[in-house]
Every structure is written in C-alpha cells, then in structure tokens.
C-alpha cells in the first residue's frame, strides 16, 4: 500500500506530469486523520474533519470524559458527526450502527433533604407573635390563621385538629387577656 504510493510519487517526481501529482493529492484528501488510510465507513465532524468511524469511535472511547476532535480539539461526540455515503455504497447504512454503541451512563439523584427539619409540627404550621401598639399586636397574632399561608393541613387529618385546637387556645388566651385588662 505505502510502497505503491511511494512508487507513484517517484514516477511523477521532478518534471513529471502534473495529473499524477493531482491524483495523489486527491487521494490524500480522503484519508482518515487517524489511520492515514482512505477513510472507510467515513464520518465527518462538525468541524469538517474526516475519519473512519471505527477509528474515531476508538478515540472517543479512549478519553470518554474529554471528547475532542483529534485535529482541531473542538468538542465532538457520537451525535455530532455526519456519515458520508458515496455513490458506490449500495447499502446506505449508518456506519455509527456498526460499532456497538456504548451503554449510556447512569446516575441517580441524591436523596432529597429538606432545608429545615422543623420541630415536629410538620409543614403548614406557623406561629407568629406580633409586637406592636396594644390591641393591634394581639389582633395580628390572633387573626393570622385566616391568611392564605402555605399549605394549611387538609380537613380531617390529625394535624388539622391540632391546628384548630391551638387556634382555639390562642383565641381564649387573647379573650382572657382583654377581659383582664378591662376589669383589672
């Protein structure tokens, strides 16, 4: 193979016909950039560089974490190359299907941990103490339960009962406090 091209080159050496030189140049244009043979099962990268698919596949497998074009170091991957089909190619089969595609990587998401573990009341329970001029402070703490706070417990659950119970206790504490202020 190499010897024939050598012989051809020396035959068309100084003063030889320009046609032979052009032919040789054309031939080299279609060489794989890895094995230096005429590309078979040819694919071309987005950056325009020609390879045999088996050669390029082996290179991608060699450094799976850093897949770059061997010629220009542009990012490259299996999905970013285009198969080339010549006229003589009767079966127009994607060369990328010939070499078994490597299995896809698998990873699982880490366990979902909530940012704030809470005090055992569960979500949806908010306690607020208003500090302000006298009656308003009491009103703010008391009537907060009507606000559309995030996720109030659904009716019928133990948490709902608990919240209603607490709500009543606070209401009675407030009423007693007001009465004490009035009569004392």
């Amino acid at each position: 193979m190499a010897e024939t091209s050598e012989a051809r080159a020396s035959a068309s050496a100084p003063g030889g016909d320009a046609g032979g030189e052009d032919d040789k140049h054309d031939e080299r244009m279609l060489e794989c950039n890895i094995c230096l043979d005429t590309a078979r099962d040819a694919v071309v990268s987005m950056c325009g560089h020609l390879f045999c698919w088996p050669c390029l596949h082996q290179w991608l497998e060699t450094r799976p974490s850093r897949q770059v074009c061997p010629v220009c170091k542009a990012a490259i991957s299996r999905d970013k190359v285009i198969p080339l089909y010549g006229r003589g190619n009767t079966k127009q089969e994607d060369p990328r299907n010939k070499v078994p595609p490597r299995p896809a990587g698998q990873r699982t998401e880490p366990e979902n941990t909530s940012g704030f573990p809470g005090f055992g009341f569960g979500e949806g329970f908010h306690m607020s103490f208003g500090i302000g001029a006298f009656p308003f402070g009491v009103f703010t703490s008391t009537f907060n339960f009507g606000d559309p706070r995030p996720s109030a417990a659904p009716r019928g659950t133990a948490q709902y009962d608990e919240e209603q119970f607490l709500s009543k206790i606070f209401l009675w504490v407030a009423i007693l406090f007001v009465l004490w202020l009035i009569f004392a």
Binding site: M1, A2, E3, E6, C35, L36, D37
Partner: peptide, 16 residues
C-alpha cells in the same frame, strides 16, 4: 496490525 500499518506509512513519508 493497524498500529504497524500507520507506523509504516509514517516512516515512508518521514523518509521521503
């Protein structure tokens, strides 16, 4: 082997 083929080609072009 593929590596020998390529080395052979490189040797030819480097000598030439």
């Amino acid at each position: 082997s593929p590596s020998e083929r390529r080395l052979q080609k490189e040797l030819m072009s480097l000598m030439k």
